[in-house]
Computed example of a mutant assay.
Amino acid sequence: MKLSDYDYNLPKELIAKYPVEPRDSCRLMVLDRKNRKIEHRIFRDVEDYLDKGDLLVLNDTKVIPARLIGKKKTGAKIEIFLLRPYTEKKWEALIKNIKRLKEGQEVIIGEDFRVKLIEKQEEGKAKVELIGDNIDRLLEKYGHIPLPPYIEREDEEKDKELYQTVFAKKKGAVASPTAGLHFTKELLEKLEKKGVKKAFCTLHVGLGTFRPIKTEDITKHKMHQEFYRIPDETLSMIKETKQKGKKVIAVGTTVVRTLETYAQTGKKEGFSDIFIYPPYSFKMVDALITNFHLPKSTLILLVSAFAGRDFIMKAYKEAVEKKYRFFSYGDAMLII
């Protein structure tokens, strides 16, 4: 299993810096696995491929404004990226220029908000304490939306809405489950009227989603852990859908990983570090809505496991030729 088999050439101008508006007007590439056919549509046409009784499973995680920019008492700038909470005030974080800080030192974010370095860890990570009243309010006031590095621009006020799905509910992600960004409330209502059901699970997307695979031998890569939870109601709806011979459609690779973790472990809640790559036998998912992913990434491996490497690489080549928009704010793909 070679990582170089999952590489492709992407012109930089095809990396989307902003989403199209309205959300459901982006392009949709439809991959038919059975007939090896590729169609080009608009995202709102997704309803043409969904039938009454089918079930959409969505990730209701909510992105927190996890990027904090502060300074030491000397005035030196320090950037802190919150990764996950241990408690309300104690967090695992990634600190740029961590060498400039000593354990016990504080970074001033605002007059009512400071971050104290408790303990240095490996790879620039640290345990920090958030000092201030009402941490949620302080993060909303001072925190920045953590846009992926490949977008190559500073976050703007409108990203607080654009980088969040319309069904985001459970705070905890530091990256958006981007396949869900294409849905509008109107499109979800339209699908509901058609008889397409929806259910939710939660996977708090971590920074590791952008971490590159560093080994040419794919099997040696170790995935990061992310918290997930699947409600009983969702599991019942999946079971009922399958019994009726209808499709379970995962909205995003995060949903696939959540459901397949449950299929492997039987646990409805916990930390997932599942790594899906070809060949893989999917237990829960019949169709997948996803974005276009980075070359040589864990995500392109997952979609290759779902649709076949050759078919995915052919689709990506066509997407580049037809100038689809790539990555988080880009266009979508439906694999049926």
Rank of each mutant, 00 (worst) to 15 (best):
T87P: 04
K267I: 01
L301R: 03
P19C: 00
Q105P: 11
W91S: 09
A250H: 02
T61W: 10
L302S: 09
I300Y: 11
G208L: 00
W91A: 06
G266P: 04
R33Q: 04
D60Q: 12
D155Q: 15
I289M: 02
L28A: 12
K99L: 15
Y18F: 11
K246Q: 04
T202M: 01
N9H: 15
A76K: 11
K170E: 08
R114Y: 13
V128L: 01
L162R: 13
E240L: 09
H204F: 06
K222N: 05
F183K: 10
E123L: 12
K267H: 06
T61S: 12
K169H: 09
F275S: 07
Y262A: 11
I238A: 03
F183M: 12
P148T: 03
A332R: 07
E122H: 04
K120Q: 09
I218P: 14
A66P: 00
T298R: 06
K267G: 00
V128W: 01
R33A: 07
E240W: 03
D155I: 12
T178N: 03
V20N: 00
V174I: 11
G266S: 01
L82W: 09
I108S: 02
K220P: 02
K268M: 03
Q264C: 10
K198Y: 07
R229L: 09
K317M: 01
E111D: 09
E321R: 14
H221G: 02
Q264T: 07
T184A: 11
K323M: 09
G252W: 04
T215C: 09
Q164K: 12
I336C: 15
V255C: 04
L130K: 03
V196L: 10
T165R: 06
I64G: 13
I238G: 05
I213H: 00
K323F: 11
I289G: 04
Q243A: 14
D133Y: 13
K73E: 15
I108Q: 00
